[in-house]
Write a protein that binds this DNA or RNA. Structure first.
Lengths: 114, 114
DNA sequence: CTTATATTTCGGTCATCAACGAAATGAAAT
DNA sequence: ATTTCATTTCGTTGATGACCGAAATATAAG
């Protein structure tokens, strides 16, 4: 009996919304996201697993890295609806802007393995 | 410093979604909602206050009753967007259908003051 | 094969939230 | 004014969730 998950619950966490916005810039690996959000890698991994389970993102292993990226063809129409207008749902905050800047310059060879 | 509330958080609770669906049938007072959801009146009151704060619903006092109803002109565009297609966001479950039936026959003069 | 790095899983802590009953408030009826 | 009923507010409890560090896993490099 697959309990139908509430799609809003996956989006009720601010850091998960931040991750979605970051991935709209470009695919990122866990440690890059960790560096921007300043959270433990295990925490970020948990958030990513929730977003993946709901169909918002996909993972793509590349050697020892796992890249996460926006799912361009989600099975759930509601997911497409939200992702196509994420700015509308989110509103642009100072924090999101700051994340964007960091994502643009983040370099996994510098921030990983610290 | 009005902390911008996450609109998804207000919708992340199943019982609050049930309430919104019920109010789409007709305005209801607290004890009617209490009767359908089978929750304590204080709990229902709390849910209603959250939905009201986010602009989903309005209250309209009528003597000793307080009727709650869908806000037809929400200030927040996201609220209108969700409410105009609530079925799309929610999906129709067995539980929601059952709530609808109960709402149609509920009578405040019978269920209140028990 | 061993080491190093990236990630996930696990176990635990702390904060948040839904739920309740009791007490307080609001509004009518007696 | 007092009682009655609907609702809200308050204080508490139990469940859920975000977070962390440590241990386990996966992959690449030496």
């Amino acid at each position: 009996m697959t309990e139908s998950t509430n799609i809003f619950k996956a989006l009720s966490d601010k850091n998960r919304l931040r991750i979605l916005k970051m991935l709209q810039i470009k695919p990122l690996c866990v440690c890059e996201i960790t560096d921007v959000l300043q959270l433990a890698a295990s925490t970020v991994s948990q958030h990513l697993s929730i977003l993946k389970k709901e169909g918002f993102i996909l993972e793509d292993r590349d050697g020892k890295w796992v890249n996460y990226l926006i799912n361009q063809r989600p099975g759930d129409q509601r997911v497409s609806a939200i992702m196509s207008q994420l700015d509308f749902w989110l509103g642009d905050s100072q924090l999101i802007e700051s994340d964007k800047q960091k994502v643009k310059v983040v370099d996994r060879f510098k921030v990983c393995g610290i």
